[in-house]
Design a protein around this nucleic acid. Structure first.
Lengths: 125, 125
DNA sequence: CATCTGCTTCGACATACATCTATGTTGACA
DNA sequence: TGTCAACATAGATGTATGTCGAAGCAGATG
């Protein structure tokens, strides 16, 4: 039931290596579509940067100008795209990001010809 | 005229580090929106993996089931998002990817907690 | 100039999407 | 059981988007 990330098959090959097939492109477009909204991007980074790596919906509605059902809708989009997971714990529902999904998209976008940042690795302060 | 990539400012900070601001989220959403279509994803990977790193429109219309004006429209979307550049050379118009833009998005999506692929680095096969 | 080819722009149309309010559901608690 | 709080779902609505055919524009060529 929990959508455990479907392992790495056609995963993680940079798109600059070889042209994407129709099926892969369709699936990836669905994931990028989930990222193609300012509210969802902020939701995702809010969840990802939350202490413990997860946040309840009550933590996520405050920072936005949109209604609570709208936040709920955006979280559903992110969940159905496989970018976040969720679980009810008592009164609250918690969300967390799925690293494998985001890192897959990250790898796909890597292009040679320019140096990328060292970035995280550590995970530090 | 050529949109030289606007250097790295708020660039390249993974979204898991700290919550995205509204302005950054809006700009990034525009770029992800350009990626949120199967045809555009395939166009991008087709261009990126073309010999010499660039392709003319005549190379790009064949592999798709959509009309040539539609391809032209999608190329315009990619160009206005800053993901590709283009230039007319005699009869043909050539397109190439802008590595800095794609790598910026790639860095943004990197999340700790799971190993990413070694990927390119060298420049390949 | 006339014409052909490669590509872009325009106008129209159907579908998808973001957002709202109203309502439903689920768990805690008196 | 009744009630309250936290989220989710449903239905409605305006806007954005993907697609097409037709027309425009720009080089090349005769």
């Amino acid at each position: 039931m929990l959508p455990v990330f479907p392992a790495a098959e056609a995963c993680c090959t940079p798109m600059a290596r070889e042209p994407l097939g129709e099926a892969d492109a369709a699936e990836l477009a669905r994931m990028f579509k989930a990222l193609a909204d300012p509210v969802r991007l902020r939701l995702l980074s809010l969840i990802a940067s939350y202490e413990g790596g997860e946040a309840c919906v009550c933590d996520l509605t405050g920072p936005f100008d949109v209604s609570q059902p709208t936040i709920s809708h955006h979280l559903k989009v992110l969940r159905e795209a496989g970018l976040v997971g969720s679980e009810r714990r008592g009164t609250w529902v918690y969300y967390w990001v799925i690293p494998a999904a985001l890192n897959r998209l990250s790898s796909l976008l890597q292009v040679p010809g320019q140096i990328s940042v060292p970035a995280l690795a550590g995970g530090g302060a």
